[in-house]
Design a protein around this nucleic acid. Structure first.
Lengths: 196, 196
DNA sequence: CCGGGCACTTGTCAAATGACAAGAAATCAG
DNA sequence: CTGATTTCTTGTCATTTGACAAGTGCCCGG
């Protein structure tokens, strides 16, 4: 089993060199998820930091009325993780479920902490990941309150086309903060546009 | 100058003991902001991690159309910080400005990193802060896509009444993702409600 | 004390989106 | 293959919210 993608991921942030990355990678275990498998269930404590090499994972929660809401969509090259549950050792507010078969790499909380303790450069990497995720959320928040649904859809289409191709539109809609009907209309409208 | 509030803040997460907290606090410097002073300007690199002992700081950015959008409101007991700029040493996408006179405690990036390096328990504390902020953003994101403006307003009123009292409503509105007119209507409506 | 902005409210109308429901189309399990 | 389920589209109408504009009151600096 080769962890090439994982090593590349460590290198991508520029905070680790090749030897360090390769070494850290040995602490991760390969992990496979079949379509519809749960990586984490709401109410339980996450103990798997999961790097996705292929496939798509969906995070979802329930709103005040009990409706399912897709809060995150993770594809290859990302870490699918409920941060607060994993790091605070508290019950997760949301589920993590594979939408397709997934291949990736896992590490437990204890192992990760061991690495953080032993390897300052990996610590930096870990912090970078949190910071990056925070920035991502901020961007989504801003878009949600200032951009129209159509613009948000176009942005997602541009930044993550693979998601649009593989994720049922109702989940995408919920991720974008709209209903599936609205998304359907947005898609039909943006295709033809008015010619002359 | 007493840093009692700062020490309490360190203790609040339960990851540091009293001696550790008091000791770490000595690395922070008192900092005062006059009303309307900028703690950070968009485009510059943040080098101040600022714990607020009193006062209110507003974070704001500009949307695609150039409109100002309030992205964060920080009050006493919180850290007013543009995380990605501070930790990645990159230009900030948003401004941080004092809405009232502010009193608090500051530390630079280099100093903070020094503490992280030397003190594992403070490192834990720092991570906890990022994780907490992330959870907060997630909550806001969920509310923005599932709750009505009125509900979001009520939630803010309940969780941070001090903000409603001190922040001009147009900033609150923008923070809630609505216009100031809408907020005004929500406020007038929720007072009387329909009697019989 | 005065003038000029802000801050806030309110009115009117339009645009964006949701709710609900009915079908068509694709997908999946037996 | 075939029926059942899920997914996606579309129609109709209601609701939420925004855009724009006018008007009142208040605060701040000279």
């Amino acid at each position: 089993m080769t962890s090439e993608a994982l090593i590349q991921f460590f290198l991508s942030t520029g905070r680790m060199n090749a030897a360090q990355a390769a070494d850290v990678a040995t602490s991760f275990s390969p992990r496979h998820l079949a379509r519809h498998d749960f990586l984490l269930r709401a109410g339980t404590i996450s103990d798997e930091y999961f790097f996705l090499e292929s496939g798509i994972v969906r995070a979802f929660a329930h709103d005040a009325d009990g409706n399912e809401v897709t809060t995150g969509l993770y594809s290859a090259g990302q870490v699918a993780l409920e941060v607060s549950s994993f790091f605070n050792r508290t019950p997760s507010p949301e589920h993590l479920q594979a939408l397709t078969d997934c291949q990736g790499w896992c590490i437990t909380y204890a192992q990760l902490n061991g690495l953080f303790h032993a390897r300052p450069e990996f610590r930096e990497f870990g912090r970078g990941l949190l910071v990056r995720e925070l920035a991502r959320l901020k961007t989504r928040l801003l878009a949600l309150s200032t951009a129209t649904a159509a613009v948000r859809y176009e942005a997602l289409l541009k930044s993550s086309p693979e998601i649009l191709q593989q994720v049922p539109l109702k989940y995408v809609a919920s991720y974008l903060g709209i209903t599936d009907s609205s998304l359907s209309r947005i898609r039909s409208g943006s295709r033809g546009a008015e010619p002359a």
